[in-house]
Simulated assay, not measured.
Amino acid sequence: MSDNYNFDEIRERIIENLKNVFDPEIPVNVYDLGLIYEINFEQRDAGLYCVIYMTLTSPACPVAGTIMEQVRLVTQAVEEVNEAKVHITFKPRWTNDMVSEEGKEIMAASGAVI
């Protein structure tokens, strides 16, 4: 594996994977919900380390651990990523204004309301 990483390309593949992670109660993926705040990279001796900062729609989310683990796993599924860590933050607090246009269309079509 080369140490010359194309971080933009890797970030895009991570985002593609994140679009397969859903809150079980909302028909929109975590990326289009606006729950992913940052995707950062750090090169280490063992390879590429990725840190994701994300939030949840509610601090009392009953499936927070499951969603975080899914985010970690789909991030590590990108070939260049050797290790991933997911951090939850509530700063800023999530609002439905953070939902992407695509996410809003999916919610409207499904009748989902947040």
Rank of each mutant, 00 (worst) to 15 (best):
V113H: 10
P59L: 05
I114P: 00
A64K: 15
D3C: 01
N6K: 04
E69R: 15
I67N: 09
Q76Y: 10
K91D: 15
I106M: 08
F41K: 05
M54W: 03
E80N: 01
S58D: 14
E80Q: 11
I106W: 01
R72A: 08
N17A: 05
D32V: 04
L56S: 09
E38V: 03
C50S: 15
K19I: 02
E69Q: 13
T55V: 05
V51Y: 13
Y37Q: 12
P92Y: 05
Q76G: 15
S110Y: 06
A64Q: 14
A84V: 06
Q43K: 14
E69K: 14
V63L: 07
I14L: 07
A109Q: 05
D97A: 13
L18I: 01
I114L: 12
S2A: 08
E83S: 13
E79R: 12
N82H: 13
A64T: 15
L56E: 05
E102L: 14
I67G: 08
T57Q: 03
C61N: 14
Y37H: 12
P59A: 10
M54N: 08
N82A: 09
R72D: 05
T55Q: 02
Y49K: 14
L56R: 10
N6I: 05
E79G: 12
A109S: 09
I106L: 05
E9Q: 08
A108T: 04
V30P: 11
N20S: 14
D3W: 04
T55F: 00
F90N: 00
S58Q: 06
R44H: 03
L33E: 00
Y37F: 10
Y5Q: 03
E38T: 10
I67V: 04
T55L: 03
V78Q: 07
K19C: 02
V28Y: 01
M1K: 04
A109W: 01
N17I: 00
Q70V: 00
V99E: 01
G65N: 15
A77N: 13
V86K: 12
N17H: 07
V63I: 13
R72W: 08
P59K: 12
K85S: 10
P24N: 09
K91M: 10
N4W: 01
V71W: 02
A60K: 14
I14S: 03
E69H: 11
S110K: 09
N6E: 08
F90E: 06
N29D: 13
N4K: 09
K91A: 14
A77E: 15
V30G: 12
V81C: 01
E101Y: 07
R44K: 11
T66E: 15
E16W: 05
D97C: 00
I36Q: 04
A46P: 00
G65M: 11
N40M: 03
Y37I: 09
M1F: 04
V30M: 05
D8E: 10
Y5M: 01
G47A: 02
N40K: 13
L56V: 07
H87K: 12
R93N: 12
E42Q: 09
A46N: 08
E25M: 02
Y49A: 01
N6M: 02
V30K: 04
R72N: 12
A60G: 08
N20G: 09
R13M: 06
E101Q: 14
V78K: 09
D45Q: 06
A109E: 11
N20H: 02
G111Y: 03
V63A: 14
R13F: 02
V21D: 11
E38R: 13
S100C: 07
I106Q: 04
L33M: 15
L18H: 04
T66L: 15
